[in-house]
Design a protein around this nucleic acid. Structure first.
Lengths: 342, 342
DNA sequence: AATAAAAATGCAATCGATTGCGCATTTGCA
DNA sequence: TGCAAATGCGCAATCGATTGCATTTTTATT
């Protein structure tokens, strides 16, 4: 009779007329088993093509060796970089990585997070969805003391490890840079303000204006969800003002690009007539023409750090949470370099 | 005494003085349990904050509800698109997705695949690493009849579902297009030939030349691993030929871009002096200047299809494998549109 | 009311690996 | 040689959910 199922430690045990306990210990290099027995066991395991059933082991150990990662959209450079960095560190430490995308929908995020809990992930790394307004599904992790790490989009009211970039400084620096370039009327295309990232970027913008004694003009700030299409609409509205801006600090590179293309088609020169700065340093921003000034966010590094923190939480009982603020770097490119054109 | 562990069906059973079997059946809506009991059980489950332990369920059912995906690099647009598409379909069908990247290294790929097997993934979706030359680690899946689906980079000698783009047609079309644009001496920057994708692209190139009675010139084909740096080196070599090319069909957009930048810096005009075409339609290729002609590969759709196929394999015993060849679409942009400049 | 038939629930084994405790065998030393 | 101390290994319970079969309870029928 052919066994079509996988060999188990019991099969090895039967083969050698010993107990499954011994096999288990031998395969785990337990010092209680003699070298000779270990070798015999390993030889048989090899011959049978034995592969431990991680499911069984996980159940018994109450540990899945799995880290969950939830992002708004896998298919976006920044997020896939974070995932890549996290996978890198996690794999080396012996963890698997399960990934889901919320599509920026609160419902799906809740669904995913609960599913990951049911799967008993050892920890969860998450950047919350734009739409998410309640956080009970995440607070549960804290309550049950399951490791949780936020990156990029964190929840202020939940105390845990967080890795964010210095969005405030980023917003400030962008604005200061535009001012330094001689732009006088700087608009800001902001993302939804429930997310700290966009909130902070806007505050940096506001602060830079104040520090430079430039009056804040409400009409120059447009808030939307920063898609390519909304970027165009926002710019249309801005340009239709009686007193249109001469620079736009866009909340991300996507809107910066769509705005730029729209303006170019209207015959408006960049950076001469209008300065543009984006945010995130998407790969395209370096190679478009004019190249887009932007803020670099170290995604890969962020993912690595997130994985390190979650693994530390998993493997130690210690719970001294930290918020790591990665520095933002302003990358000045053509889209805002007016001085060199004057 | 406070139970700090998660509630189980046994806790629910004890609470109601019934058996765990009944609880299990009730929670799974088994018709053998009366509606009244079901409601009581569900109420208690809710009150206790019960969440089924998927690990236990998986072990008993010998099914992990998990699909493994292995790609060379998560952090690359095409692959992250595939992952995104696959996650989309998988999640809706109740599957989790674990992801790992091989970094194009054979050793890591083998390691990953074995780990996924130990984790008893229900199926594996993979695009093999550039470096991988032996396939025993994948043949095992077929031998054990575990669902396996290749995408993009498939292994010819393993019979299973495959989703590829029509690389041959892509290579042919690119070359024909360049010929139609009046380019006479067309070089090809090819990827490692052990991968069918690059092999087919090159064959398409060769075939188009023959069909147009253009002699094939060995010295115009350069094979490397298509990184940005290697693109530059390749172009340098090509331009140093006694008889340099007037067009380059690059194996991917990355090399197309780096080649273009190199040529531009040398004062060579594109597409007037040299025509360039890439492959894959990376997001940047549309927005750079000049924009890069390329072949679109529907990554997201490919991922969806891959997930559908693997789920079909998982959920039916049927094993009639198919190879789905997604059509390639030539996107003509500025980098090869010489006619309009003459 | 008695009995058959149907409906509802429980028992206990199972999935595969792990581990505390205990038993048996070997080794060491006086 | 005798006895304590190592050393090596096995028993059986455990992790939490599932399920074939058995048992109990309820309903229907005469």
């Amino acid at each position: 009779m052919i066994k079509n199922s996988e060999p188990t430690i019991h099969d090895i045990a039967r083969e050698l007329q010993i107990s499954a306990s011994t096999v288990s210990r031998a395969l785990n290099d337990n010092p209680r088993i003699s070298l000779k027995t270990k070798e015999k066991i390993k030889a048989v395991a090899n011959a049978l093509g034995y592969r431990p059933n991680t499911l069984a082991s996980n159940l018994r150990n109450k540990k899945s060796n799995t880290i969950g990662i939830v992002v708004p959209l896998i298919n976006r450079h920044f997020f896939s970089s974070v995932i890549s960095g996290a996978e890198d560190v996690a794999f080396k430490a012996g963890y698997n990585v399960v990934i889901s995308q919320s599509n920026d929908l609160a419902d799906k995020e809740i669904n995913i997070v609960q599913s990951m809990f049911s799967n008993r992930v050892d920890g969860l790394i998450i950047s919350i969805a734009m739409q998410t307004m309640t956080f009970d599904h995440l607070k549960i992790f804290r309550k049950k003391n399951i490791p949780l790490v936020f990156f990029d989009r964190a929840v202020p009211e939940i105390e845990t490890d967080k890795i964010v970039v210095d969005d405030f400084a980023g917003g400030f620096r962008v604005t200061q840079h535009l001012i330094d370039q001689g732009y006088k009327r700087i608009a800001h295309l902001a993302g939804t303000q429930n997310l700290m990232t966009y909130f902070d970027r806007k505050n940096g913008y506001v602060d830079a204006l104040r520090k430079n004694n430039i009056p804040f003009d409400e009409s120059l700030v447009i808030i939307n969800s920063l898609t390519s299409e909304e970027g165009v609409i926002a710019v249309q509205n801005l340009m239709n003002l009686k007193n249109p801006p001469d620079a736009i600090f866009c909340g991300n590179d996507t809107t910066a690009l769509s705005a730029m293309i729209y303006l170019r088609d209207k015959g408006i020169r960049i950076p001469q007539d209008i300065g543009i700065v984006g945010f995130s340093n998407e790969p395209f921003s370096k190679v478009v023409s004019p190249s887009i000034s932007t803020i670099a966010q170290p995604g890969f590094q962020m993912g690595q750090k997130a994985a390190e923190l979650i693994i530390k939480q998993i493997e130690t009982k210690e719970r001294t949470f930290q918020t790591i603020v990665l520095p933002t770097e302003l990358i000045v490119r053509e889209s805002s370099s007016r001085r060199s054109f004057q």
